[in-house]
Nucleic acid binder design. Structure first.
Lengths: 111, 111
DNA sequence: CCATTATTTAACATTTTACTTAATTGACAA
DNA sequence: TTGTCAATTAAGTAAAATGTTAAATAATGG
């Protein structure tokens, strides 16, 4: 029976993790440095278990590492998996940049 | 009562739309040119109503425009909203590229 | 009008997500 | 030991996502 490869990049999990405003806010906060669960919960008006759940979603997507340290659990962002999402979007970047490039050339030509 | 601003970029909807493999496959297919609903359904083993549902998710996220044309509904990708997702990720790009940039500078310095 | 084709809507079952409050674990400190 | 603080697990609920099959709509063509 083939097991799920945890190391494989899981775009489903990564995009789904990024689809919730609280989880994006948590990433934004962690971009400024590591934090404990309570510190991450503070800006939000949901319960602590709710935050704990969001952290597990981020963890399963590979975006977060949680290290128990003293009594607090230190949360550390690992943004590398986000590069997979970035990479996927990049493949289609031309689809939205194309038109502006063309427009820019048109304008340039007229001058 | 403030109405929902449909024109506002909705990162929740965009990321959520990208979180399903069938919907990403649909975007990949549409990147190669417009297609009808049946054509989009062909590569997948789910029912036509299921595809129809996925198209509506993409439409609500602003990634798709559907124009009834003859008997077929022509699906056209509008990747511009994806640039919002791209933009969000770009803000944190440094978190995963930092290490490589530093390494590159180190190597450069040594030469 | 009737059949055909493309797609959507309806109705429904199942699973997943997101949240709550209450109870539990684990580590420290008096 | 006992209390306290940080965080998780448990139990339950409501809503949303995903899929199915069957029926409806809409447009064309004999």
């Amino acid at each position: 029976m083939p097991k799920r490869d945890k190391s494989a990049v899981n775009l489903d999990a990564i995009f789904a993790a990024l689809a919730h405003p609280i989880r994006r806010a948590i990433i934004e906060q962690l971009a400024g440095g590591d934090a404990s669960v309570s510190e991450l919960a503070k800006p939000h008006k949901v319960s602590l278990p709710a935050i704990s759940g969001h952290l597990r979603v981020l963890e399963r997507a590979g975006l977060l590492k949680i290290t128990p340290e003293w009594r607090v659990h230190r949360c550390h962002i690992d943004a590398v998996p986000m590069s997979a999402a970035f990479g996927w979007l990049t493949r289609y970047r031309i689809l939205w940049e194309d038109r502006f490039d063309r427009l820019a050339r048109e304008v340039e030509k007229k001058q």
